[in-house]
Computed example of a mutant assay.
Amino acid sequence: MRVLSNKILSNHVFSFITFLMLVFIFNSCNIKIKKEINSTFEKVKRIEILAYEDRNQWTKEDNPDFLKLNYIQNGKLEINKKYLRNRISLNKEQIEILKNKLRKCETENWAAACYDPRHAILFYDKNDKIFGYIEMCFDCNGRRSSENFKVFSECALGLEETFKEFGVTYFGE
């Protein structure tokens, strides 16, 4: 009976230690994401949210390589206006809301294979150049980002309602 009791106790201890390790790992990841977001937002002069026609529907001339986002060239937005549905510059209050939403990082853990991106967040520096972006497909929970935003780009997938609150009206056909 005593052996069984010790075995049960050791299983509980092992479970508890595993739980603590998972909490530690999760918190470490969250801390890294929050630091990265804070660092990024210190550089931000302004932020724009774009809503556009699904990039799969663009002409080859306007979108020669679907896997590469090509409407940002040399820190400037170069998108054919015929695809653009919303272009919203965030005010200071909205920028703070966006920052806090990204820090919370509320996402769903699912994805589909479609990747029909219709939205992007563009981050501008003090020289009014785009220094980073996150492009997303709310339909499949997919995203692409500039290298400097990869750490927290997944956090943008939970922003559809926030985009609506900011005035984005286009979410597909």
Rank of each mutant, 00 (worst) to 15 (best):
E48T: 02
S10C: 02
F171R: 08
L77N: 04
Y71N: 11
N30D: 15
V23D: 05
G75P: 07
L157E: 01
I25C: 07
S153M: 12
F41S: 05
A112E: 03
N6P: 03
T40E: 01
W110H: 06
Y133P: 08
E147H: 11
E147F: 11
E165Q: 13
E135L: 14
C105T: 03
L67E: 14
Y52V: 00
L84A: 07
K104A: 12
S15I: 08
E161I: 08
E173D: 07
L50Y: 01
K60E: 05
S146L: 05
T18A: 15
I8A: 05
G75F: 01
N109G: 04
I97H: 11
K164I: 02
K32R: 15
E154K: 13
C137S: 15
F152Y: 13
N30H: 15
N27Q: 15
T59E: 10
N100P: 09
Y133D: 08
G132K: 00
R2Q: 12
K45P: 11
E161T: 06
A51T: 06
Q94E: 14
I49Y: 02
C140H: 01
N6H: 13
N6K: 14
N70D: 06
G132W: 00
L50F: 02
K35V: 03
K104I: 09
N38K: 05
K60H: 08
R103P: 05
N56S: 13
S15G: 09
S89T: 05
N86V: 01
S15V: 08
E106I: 12
A113T: 03
N86D: 08
A112S: 06
K81N: 11
M1E: 08
F41K: 03
N80A: 02
R85D: 00
K7R: 13
E154S: 14
L69C: 10
E173W: 07
M136D: 09
E135D: 15
N91Y: 10
L50N: 00
Y124F: 12
E106M: 12
E93Y: 14
R85E: 04
N63F: 01
V151D: 10
E108F: 04
V168M: 09
L98W: 04
N30A: 14
V44S: 09
G167A: 07
I47E: 03
D54W: 07
I97Q: 14
E160K: 10
T107S: 06
A111W: 00
F41Q: 04
E61S: 10
R143Y: 09
G158H: 06
I121Y: 07
I31V: 15
I33Y: 13
L90W: 00
I134T: 14
I88K: 05
D54A: 10
K82G: 06
D128W: 05
R46W: 05
K99L: 07
E36I: 02
N109F: 11
I134W: 10
F16S: 13
S5I: 15
E154H: 13
K104T: 09
A156D: 04
S153F: 09
E93R: 13
H119E: 10
N100V: 02
Y71P: 02
I47L: 10
T107N: 08
Y83G: 11
Q73A: 07
K32A: 15
E165V: 08
N56D: 14
K164T: 04
R46H: 12
G172H: 11
N127E: 02
I88E: 00
N74Y: 03
E61A: 07
N80W: 02
N56P: 09
V23H: 10
